[in-house]
Design a protein around this nucleic acid. Sequence first.
RNA 1: GUCCCCAUCGUCUAGCCCGGUCCAGGACACCGGCCUUUCACGCCGGCAACAGGGGUUCAAAUCCCCUUGGGGACGCCA
Length: 469
Amino acid sequence: MEKIITRFPPSPTGYLHVGGARTALFNWLYARHMKGKFILRIEDTDIERSTRESVDAILEALEWIGIDWDEGPYFQSQRFDVYKKYAQKLLDSGQAYYCTCSREQLENMRKKAMEVGGKPKYDGTCRGKELSKTDDSVIRFKAPLVGTTVVEDVIKGNIVFQNSELDDFIIQRGDGTPTYNFAVVVDDITMGINTVIRGDDHVNNTPKQIMLFKAFGCPLPTFGHVPMVLGCDRTRLSKRHGAMSVTAYRDMGFLPDALINYLVRLGWSYGDQEFFSKDELIEKFSLENIGRSAGIFNMEKLLALNADHIKATPPGKLARHLLPFLRERNLNAEEGPYIESIIETLATRSKTLQEMAEGAMFYFQEEIEYEETAAKKFLTPSVLEPLNLLLMELNSLEHLSEKNLENAFIKIMEQTGLKLGKIAQPVRVALTGKTVSPGIFEMIHALGKKRTQARLKRAVEFITGQSDL
RNA sequence: GUCCCCAUCGUCUAGCCCGGUCCAGGACACCGGCCUUUCACGCCGGCAACAGGGGUUCAAAUCCCCUUGGGGACGCCA
């Protein structure tokens, strides 16, 4: 079978948003699954709106979510000569013509067409005129007037368009640059692309592109149009729906694999399975299981998936993702056993890396700051005894395993007659300053003997200092 | 306005192609309970959907038609 070649063609007029990331993912996953090739192409024929910053932002986002490409990035702005050559071919074979209609004229045509209840389109004024090139003439494609064009879509099935609905669209602007539909087809032909997976919003472009493929006598690629991602108000995703850019999710503390998992699962399914690693996605992805209806972006579910991915990621690997968030908080954390044991205590209670970093702060603070209500309630003279006993027990412990710690606490319970809760909460406040934290034993284990003892001593001093007053 | 697409719990979806095993399954969220030293995790249970109407058929979430609703596209943007 022919090698699958897919592509992702963003236009650099902004950051990479989650919708774009999803179509990139579908193309990439399909190429990887089929052991084919994935090409990155920057569609910057609109020189006005394209920026270098956008290109950089898009590449950065793709790299972060782990999408790599086998070829490119190609820039359409560097291929203008190719498009001109192809436009000339159409001119030569009589399948395209120069048009000198003004923008005002076009405006009027559209208005008139709308008035009689039709679709706004070019009326073919210059079609038979055999005009030659002028300074600002455009080139139009001579589209078939009658018949139908059918899009054989692998996701939606056959879609039939009446050619009479389409018009002689422009393929080259007055300034000599190619328009979108034209550049896409020339590129897909010259780059050997045989599988085009893109957003639903492109179905109406497809018959035009098919006409061009036919005009060039080239075989059609396989088309697949994936339903769009909608905002919570069921309209096209836009800024007012909140965070859109892929890197914004990185900054909020999402794991790239969690975002990937969520985005792919939104519109694609594999039975009842919800959790997928990246490799599993590559292994199981298929075009057949892409759904036909639009999906709504749901933050809650993304959060839940992120929590699952956090739990499933080994601490060492998680550490590398977490470190930037720690440094953001001016904590001097580094890779190593300490951060890994910290992560082990936090993984089950963090939905995002931001949350985890927040929860990890007390591990790095030299001087614990007690929450007022917590200190008032739990750091009282009556807990001096168990606190001191714990200090002693820790002295005699070789290994702070959770088992050993549990035994130590049991011993103290027996000696003081206090219930575990009565001992654990004060210790918790002493170690973290708060009443909410990871489990006592795992936390002491992570903290280590020195830090734990220092904090306990400080709490004892705090209590005696208070009661002296 | 015209054209195109879509339609199962609030949301993501399984089931639909190859009608019966579906008084519709899973997940998120939500609500209970269990576990428990706090918060979580985990476990158990609950709530909750085939848009409406016509056909076809012994039988329809599944096939056909219409209606309604939603989305998208109609640029010398992509």
